[in-house]
Structure formats: structure tokens, C-alpha cells
Design a protein around this nucleic acid. Structure first.
Lengths: 208, 208
DNA sequence: TGACTAACAAACCGCCTGGTCGGTATTCTA
DNA sequence: TAGAATACCGACCAGGCGGTTTGTTAGTCA
């Protein structure tokens, strides 16, 4: 039926790469506009493919978003939080360091569009149980890593034994997400650094 | 053109009441589905009116949302935060009391659907400057009230003078919104109370 | 009490968008 | 190397939804 086949180069047919380009483009669109606001046409254009390519790799818009969660978002958490924490000599210091880095060098995208994980969780948790479970699993995964860090800090005498690790880890994540959210509302990097400064006050109070 | 005019009672024509019913229905829809997810048809059904009624009172979907922000959301903040704080004998204690009440008796809707203010701010701030300004103004309004409470606490010797009131107030709001968000993701009231417990630890550390 | 206007009612429009489907080109396999 | 399977193309479709328009009814005021 399509009588005017578009001229395109040697095409470099590479399914895995195509799939990845689609996922990464979808991630950016979701980050900016949310899941419901993401337009497949935009994703396709950014990924340099078409409906046919998309629906060959994914069953639906929702499945595409699930792939984004299970790859890009999960990997990012692992890279920025899990890996540094699990190999840390001084876990609490490392935790503080990660957050300090967040407050200062954080990319402009976080101020402009917020935390991709939190955005999706806030938008989709009440609307779709599939989203909620995946997102909440990542939060628990993340929290567990902080809990482990605090517990190891206790063993090493760097964290007060009276600290409730699960509550403190939960609160740390909540406060960080809250700070990012306030900065996004204000569209001001200064808000993020002011807010995280106070989070650091809290975290330092866990030390002994 | 409409040849089958619907039978309805004496209609109790009352423009102000109709407008209010539309706004309140819109608030509930936005709370559940976000602004982009709100369907006018749903609002109309809940409010017991039709397109004609809606577009008589509001110019567009967006203007309706602005009315929701400027009335329902603003009023709620004023009622639960501003009023108790401004008349408080012991401002820090009052602040702590408000948050304690939040952690325990909080309505089921907050766990299920989150904070209406934060939901809208996270969804719309990056997408529409009109939304962002209105929502951010409410946040500043709210923050100012907490700042004033902390400052009065200092005067009365209840808050340590070394506390940075603006940062502390900002962080308090951020952390609270974060806690609500975590509870919403987990769909668990226990998460909210655990998280706010730790926020209370922080707030008590401001006292002297 | 009769014209004028505000306050609705609801059919209708047109665009947007997720998803489908028939077709084609490339790669794999027997 | 032929045929099948995979990867991808893009026109098309149908439903949903915000917004418009035309028509009707209830107040209002001279």
C-alpha cells in the first residue's frame, strides 16, 4: 500500500539498538510530559522510527513505559545510589556525599522536570496497579540500600545505635524527593540547595 | 435544536451554587486523575450540569482548574495551616501538632491520591507557566506562615536562634510532601506515619 | 406584562492520538 | 539459494474529548 517508500540510508538494521533508542526517547518524553502526556509520535520522531517499529518491539504504550521503568530508571538508581553505597567504607559519609552532589552539580533537567521516578509514581500510582507495583518496588529497593548503609554504619560505630534505620532511610528518600519537587515548583536551583542543606543537617544528626 | 428537553425539577436556578458545584467536582476529578486526566464529562455528571453550564461560568478547562486552585486548594491550606499557626501561643508546638494530626487521622483520600497541591504542582509546573505561578505562590504563602511561626518561636525562646527559619520551613514542607508521596506510592498509611515520625524528630531538634 | 438577559441544555464538530494492518526490505536458516 | 521469519514502513481508522453553537427557560426590570 505505501507507494512512496521513504528513501533512507543502509538502515543499519539493528533491533536491539532500535529498541533502545525507542526506550530512551520514551524516557525523555515521559520525564517532560508524564506518561499520559507522552505522545508516541514525538517518541517515534526522536527515535527515528515509525509506528511499525514501535509496535514490533512493544505491545502498547503502557508496555513501553514499563520497559522504561525496568531499564533506564532502575539502572539510574543502581548507578547513583546502590553501587556507591554497597562498596562504601564509611556508608553515612558516602550517603551524605551523594546528596551533597545532588544539591550542587545536579543536572538542569532535574530542576526543570523533576525526578523521573517520583514523577511517574505520583502520576500513575493511583491510576494503574501495574505502574504502582513496579515503581514501589524500585522505592523499596532504594530504601533497602540506604537501610543497609545505615546498619553498616552502626556496626562501624559511625551511626547512633538508637537510629531507626528503616524510618530514617524512608524519610531521607521522601525528603529528597520533596526537595526536588519544591525546586521544580519554584524553578529555582537555589531552592534545591537550601532544602538539601537542611536534609544534610538531619543526616548528620544520625552520626555519633 | 434539542427537541427532548430533559425533565428536571424546579431547577433551583442558583448561579453561584452551580459554579461552586462545578468547582468542587473539578477538584475531586483533578485530585484523582490530575489536570490532564480530568474529563469534563465526569465533572459535569458529578456537578449535575452540562457543557452549557460549564462554559457559561468558565472560559476553558484551564480556567476551571485555576478557579479550583484559587478557591478550594488555597482555602484548605489557610484553614489547616495558616489559621492555627497565626493564633498560636506556642508556634513550634502547634506546627508539630498539625503534622502529628496529619500522620494519624489523615483522610484516606490523601493516602490514595496524595496532596492535591503537590500533585498539581508536579504535573503542571513544567508544562504551563500559569499553573506554576499560582501553585508556587501558594507554596510561598504556606512557607511564609511557617517561617513566621518559627520566628515567633525564637522570640519566645522556644526555637533555637541559630535555626535558619526559611530553610527549615522549606524543608518541613518538602519533607511532608515527600512523606505523602511515599505513602501514596506504597498505598500504605503506615508509611505516612513512619515517615512523619522522622519529620517530627527533625522539628523537635529545632527546639531549645 | 412584555422585552431583555442570564443561566442553563445538549447536539454537534473537528482534531488528536493510540492502535491496526497490509506491504516491503533485510536477515536467518535449512 | 529459496523460503521463512524478523524488522520496519506508513497510510488508515475509530474513539475520545475539548470546545462551539443553537436553542430553551427562568429571572429581572422598565
Amino acid at each position: 500500500m505505501p507507494e512512496s517508500q521513504r528513501i533512507r540510508g543502509p538502515v543499519d538494521r539493528d533491533p536491539a539498538a532500535t529498541r533502545l533508542r525507542i526506550i530512551e526517547a520514551a524516557f525523555r518524553e515521559i520525564h517532560r510530559n508524564g506518561f499520559q502526556g507522552m505522545r508516541l509520535e514525538q517518541v517515534l520522531q526522536a527515535a527515528g522510527t515509525t509506528k511499525g517499529g514501535l509496535y514490533h518491539h512493544f505491545d502498547s504504550k503502557k508496555e513501553l513505559a514499563f520497559a522504561v521503568i525496568d531499564t533506564v530508571i532502575l539502572d539510574t538508581i543502581n548507578e547513583y545510589w546502590l553501587q556507591p553505597l554497597e562498596s562504601a567504607e564509611r556508608p553515612l559519609q558516602t550517603l551524605i556525599g551523594i546528596i551533597e552532589a545532588h544539591g550542587s552539580k545536579v543536572t538542569q533537567d532535574v530542576i526543570a522536570y523533576g525526578c523521573p521516578l517520583n514523577n511517574l509514581a505520583q502520576e500513575m500510582s493511583p491510576l494503574d496497579e501495574g505502574f504502582r507495583q513496579r515503581l514501589n518496588a524500585i522505592y523499596r529497593h532504594w530504601q533497602d540500600a540506604v537501610v543497609a548503609a545505615l546498619e553498616r554504619g552502626k556496626v562501624r560505630g559511625q551511626v547512633r545505635p538508637s537510629v531507626n534505620s528503616r524510618e530514617a532511610a524512608l524519610f531521607t528518600l521522601a525528603a529528597l524527593e520533596g526537595c526536588i519537587g519544591m525546586a521544580k515548583s519554584a524553578q529555582a536551583a537555589g531552592v534545591l540547595s537550601s532544602c538539601t542543606t537542611e536534609l544534610l543537617v538531619y543526616l548528620r544528626s544520625l552520626a555519633q
